[in-house]
């Protein structure tokens, strides 16, 4: 069985974890109403963390794209229906596209709203656009729409992996699992 490289596997799961964290943070700060200094601070911290997670995803995805080009990906297992191979490929490309686009749109929207990203409280990233409240609102809608599109694709991607693993009982998912756990599975 041809496996993804260990760097690709590590990045895949790390990015997955970060994407779920970004959703969790966004849902949490979306539910916090500022009514006091404490809620102001809570919401502010959650937003700041959400931005850090998003920019980290952007950086890691760019590394992943380079690895993808350099190391490629294992071919699909033999005897898979052609439409499924095509659908999987299309989903992967859309996932890559959205993993790049979402943080970039987020960065644009926070620039438009006049709140720059100060990564890990250390480095202030340049504003991608000037302050424009209306543009900020539009970009926020686009950001949310793209986020739910990403979520739907992640669900499809995960459902397919689970189907291969537990119903087809093939090696599709194992190619993206660390080799030690796949050895155990291989018993």
């Amino acid at each position: 069985m041809q496996r993804y490289s260990s760097a690709q596997i590590a990045l895949h799961w790390l990015i997955a974890l970060l994407i779920f964290s970004a959703f969790g943070l966004a849902w949490y700060f979306g539910s916090v109403e500022i009514t006091s200094p404490a809620t102001f601070k809570l919401k502010g911290s959650l937003i700041v963390w959400h931005k850090w997670v998003g920019i980290t995803v952007l950086a890691l995805v760019l590394i992943r794209l380079v690895l993808r080009v350099v190391r490629g990906a294992p071919a699909a297992l033999p005897n898979q229906p052609a439409w499924q191979v095509k659908a999987a490929e299309a989903t992967h490309y859309l996932l890559y596209a959205l993993m790049v686009a979402l943080p970039v749109i987020g960065w644009l929207l926070t620039s438009a709203k006049g709140y720059p990203v100060v990564l890990f409280k250390l480095v202030q990233l340049p504003d991608l656009v000037g302050k424009d409240e209306a543009l900020g609102k539009t970009l926020q809608d686009v950001h949310e729409f793209a986020a739910y599109t990403l979520l739907a694709l992640v669900a499809l991607h995960a459902a397919a992996a689970i189907k291969h693993h537990f119903i087809d009982r093939d090696d599709t998912l194992k190619r993206m699992l660390p080799s030690s756990s796949s050895r155990k599975n291989g018993l």
Binding site: G44, I47, V48, P116, V118
Partner: peptide, 8 residues
């Protein structure tokens, strides 16, 4: 600065 983020 609010939450360490410069704001105008």
């Amino acid at each position: 600065k609010q939450m360490g983020v410069p704001t105008e």
